[in-house]
Design a protein around this nucleic acid. Structure first.
Length: 475
RNA sequence: GGUGGGGUGGCCGAGAGGCGAGGCAACGGCCUGCAAAGCCGUGUACGCGGGUUCGAAUCCCGUCCCCACCUCCA
């Protein structure tokens, strides 16, 4: 009955023991809005959406904060890259670019049924909290402004013995790439809390601060926003596996060094690979949200991304959406068969086995096994004419699919699509009458011609005792 | 090199000492005019080599291979 989650810091399953009984505060690292959302972003957001839905089902009042990093080197660079493309047109300012991408993210999340977070703070709306936090760290001797006049402020890793608690990374070997440009830091392990404004950067990307105008470093954003929106101690901190180090390690160090307890549990979702390969721009194999939503209906995309355990690495393959479509179709067909038999769903009750699987570190795959078992038993009962069993099975499937957000009946087509459907229905039903007449006359060749025509058009027929049902393939 | 995570049947994907989760695909059967849908059944699965045990995919020892992070990344 207790919800357990795998905690990265202790490397073990931990009981969820909320700071405030009955309430759960959860902070999830959202995207840096630099470019369009891809399958990995969706999977991450979906993982915490599933957790949030399950906790709410379990009766917790969940406060979910998912930030938007809308000021960052990456965003400034993305805009800079666009500039020379068309000199006749003014490039968007960085903040317009960030907002446009943010809207794309919101649209993609909404499309696959990720519920809106309780709050979705933007970094640029919380600069004050970041400046305060940095000031606190300086006061406590864990951060220092650069002495080279750059306006940079660095976290002093050596001053904080707790550094490394989350990932047990020594921190010694942290010197390469961009960070090797140590500028004015005392140790290469130190990381930037504040980046002093540089002349080539837009004036709009600088905020005043006691140690010089500039902008926040990435890590400090999350520390400041988590504390501001959830308080000094909260229950769950989530994010992608790739953020464990250095991002989350640094976050933990900053916040604890500033004197707050910070997150109790650290949860990390697994990454998505595509056909066995890591997604990367150079390989050109990135799968974007728009690709997925163009290839399958949203509920199928959601199912495909939710079906694997959130901590496992998920390899997205060419057939993944087809498989998901079949699985969702089975759920759908149970509902259709029950309805055709005139059986209403009983109360939506979640089976014990499903709940136990979900309580145990969000065991979605095992929970789906229970769901599909129930589908089969429902179908058996329809064949056996056992109305009561059917009603309960259908109710249970609605409950289980509902809490996972994959109940097809809650994903009705957009209202605007109905007229097209009506027009199609008129044609199909006309043809079905023809076929019915042919079948009555035992003119199988004529009947099959009609069916072949419809099949070729992507319409599937099912002959039942009380007539023929039709549906668009994959719907 | 350091820090984590893995190798399960044709594919995806759970489980973690004892009746082969579940989905997809395949094959056989029931049903059907034939199909479709649904149901029933079939498959000597747990990287490799040892060991412990009445019994191991699950524990122990050894060994091979893969992935992620350590630089920005969900």
């Amino acid at each position: 009955m207790t919800v357990r989650l795998y905690d990265t810091r202790s490397q073990s399953l931990q009981d969820l023991d909320p700071v405030v009984p009955g309430r759960v505060g959860m902070y999830v690292c959202g995207p840096t809005v630099q470019s369009s959302p891809h399958i990995g972003h969706l999977r991450s957001a979906l993982s915490y959406d599933l957790l949030r839905r399950w906790l709410e089902h379990r009766g917790y009042a969940v406060t979910l904060i998912r930030n938007v990093t809308d000021i960052d080197d990456k965003i400034l660079n993305a805009v800079r890259r666009q500039e020379p493309a068309d000199s006749s047109r003014q490039a968007d300012p960085w903040w317009a670019h960030a907002y446009r991408v943010e809207l794309e993210f919101t649209a993609a999340y909404t499309a696959i049924g990720v519920l809106p977070p309780t709050n979705e703070p933007r970094a640029t709306g919380n600069i004050g909290a970041m400046v305060d936090l940095i000031g606190r760290l300086i006061d406590r001797g864990h951060a220092y402004p650069a002495t080279d006049g750059s306006g940079d402020v660095y976290f002093d890793v050596g001053s904080w013995p707790g550094y490394g608690t989350l990932t047990r990374q020594a921190g010694d070997a942290l010197l390469s790439g961009e960070e090797a440009d140590t500028r004015a830091r005392r140790s290469p392990r130190d990381f930037a809390l504040w980046k002093g404004h540089k002349p080539e950067e837009p004036e709009s990307a600088a905020w005043p601060a006691p140690w010089g105008a500039g902008r926040p470093g990435w890590h400090i954003e999350c520390s400041a926003m988590a504390e501001r929106y959830l308080g000094p101690e909260f229950d769950i901190h989530g994010g992608g596996l790739d953020l464990r180090f250095p991002h989350h390690e640094n976050e933990l160090a900053q916040s604890t060094a500033s004197g707050v307890p910070f997150a109790r549990l650290w949860v990390h979702n697994g990454l998505v690979t595509v056909n066995g390969q890591k997604m990367s721009k150079s390989l050109g194999n990135s799968v974007y949200a728009s690709d997925l939503l163009g290839a399958a209906r949203p509920v199928v995309v959601r199912y495909a991304l939710a079906a694997a355990h959130y901590r496992s690495d998920r390899d997205f393959q060419d057939g993944s959406l087809v498989e998901a479509e079949e699985a969702v179709g089975r759920i759908e067909r149970l509902f259709e068969r029950a309805a055709a038999a005139g059986i209403d769903a009983a109360a939506a009750v979640i089976p014990e086995a499903f709940a136990a699987a979900m309580d145990d570190d969000l065991g979605v795959p095992e929970a789906l096994a229970v769901l599909h078992d129930t589908v089969r038993r429902g179908n058996q009962a329809i064949d056996a004419g056992d109305t009561d069993v059917v009603a309960h099975a259908v109710g249970a499937v609605h409950a289980m699919a509902g809490v996972l957000g994959v109940d097809p009946t809650t994903w009705q087509a957009a209202p605007g699509g109905d007229r097209t459907h009506d027009a199609l229905a008129g044609l199909v039903e006309r043809l079905l009458e023809e076929r019915a007449t042919a079948r009555r006359n035992r003119d199988w060749a004529a009947a099959d011609r009609v069916r072949d025509t419809l099949t070729a058009a992507g319409i599937v027929l099912e002959d039942g005792a009380d007539g023929t049902r039709w549906s668009v393939d994959g719907r």
